[in-house]
């Protein structure tokens, strides 16, 4: 490929413009003086002020964070167990059903997951009186269920890629199988557990559809609050909220990228040093 792929570069420029122009426009209009969200009326930060003085937003954010923390943590434990099961336990009764149950939620439309859980919770409340009121608990249970399968996928693929000889070595040295799992496998897959946790956390924080079904009176997560406001049209304080979220995510991603590249550089330097001292 000596020629510059002009066509590909043109499409890429268009594609990235397509990705980022709406976001940039949203950021610019968050500093708009005018109440009419689409007409420019001068620079102002008043929407940020109104956002910070809004109690509802704070409460919704706090609820969302609580649900995301709890559900991501439990989902990581359950998802890791399921991933280990798929990768290491080749034969057990009901394996086909099990692998079906960890794949199906990935492709199940959210609306169907939502109504199935709502019907389930409603019937359960009728039969055994629990859950008495839908809210934090039911949203958390729903989020655990549909985010654990993403953790499973991450853990499973990491375990199929990992070098099994270290597990065999530990086995040869007399470790019991569960000790191998605890002392060898778990440390090796810990990066997958971390990325699985992050994935589950963001999925939970971002969910609207399933939450909207299984929530109850008084339990409004941040996406549900945004959903109820956005349904009525474009409002400037949502622009301000979006800008803050984009800024926060941007900072986190850049920070993570920088930390990762630093770790990589350090690893390479240590490698070189090791070669030099050994050679």
């Amino acid at each position: 490929m000596t020629r510059r792929p002009v066509f590909l570069i043109t499409v890429m420029c268009f594609g990235f413009a397509f990705f980022y122009i709406p976001i940039l426009s949203m950021i610019v209009y968050s500093f708009n003086e005018s109440r009419l969200a689409t007409v420019w009326g001068g620079f102002s930060t008043k929407w940020y002020v109104s956002l910070f003085s809004n109690r509802q937003v704070g409460a919704a954010l706090w609820l969302s964070l609580k649900i995301a923390l709890v559900s991501a943590s439990i989902a990581t434990i359950l998802g890791a167990m399921a991933g280990i099961t798929l990768a290491r336990f080749r034969k057990f009764r009901g394996r086909t059903l099990f692998s079906g149950m960890v794949t199906a939620p990935l492709i199940m439309p959210e609306v169907i997951t939502g109504i199935s859980l709502l019907i389930f919770f409603t019937l359960l409340a009728n039969w055994i009186g629990w859950p008495g009121q839908r809210g934090f608990t039911t949203i958390t249970l729903a989020h655990i269920t549909f985010s654990m399968v993403f953790v499973t996928t991450v853990v499973h693929s990491r375990m199929t890629q990992m070098d099994r000889s270290i597990e065999e070595a530990a086995m040869d040295l007399g470790s019991r199988p569960w000790q191998v799992l605890r002392d060898v496998t778990l440390p090796v897959i810990s990066p997958a557990l971390l990325s699985g946790w992050l994935l589950a956390f963001t999925i939970s924080l971002d969910d609207v559809v399933i939450s909207s079904f299984v929530t109850g009176p008084g339990a409004t997560t941040l996406p549900l609050l945004i959903w109820s406001k956005v349904k009525l049209g474009v409002t400037p304080d949502i622009n301000a909220l979006a800008t803050l979220i984009v800024a926060l995510v941007g900072i986190c991603v850049i920070l993570a990228g920088w930390l990762m590249s630093r770790a990589e550089r350090r690893r390479l330097a240590e490698q070189r040093l090791a070669y030099r001292t050994n050679g």
């Binding site: 689409t38 609207v208 996406p223 956005v230 474009v234």
Partner: peptide, 29 residues
């Protein structure tokens, strides 16, 4: 560039839809 492809994923889905509501409205630039 890969990071730029993934970055919108980490922002809220709802807000990405909302961004287009702002662009498509009758009086928008």
């Amino acid at each position: 560039l890969l990071m730029l492809v993934i970055l919108p994923f980490w922002t809220s889905f709802l807000l990405r839809v909302y961004a287009w509501m702002g662009l498509m409205g009758r009086n928008s630039w």
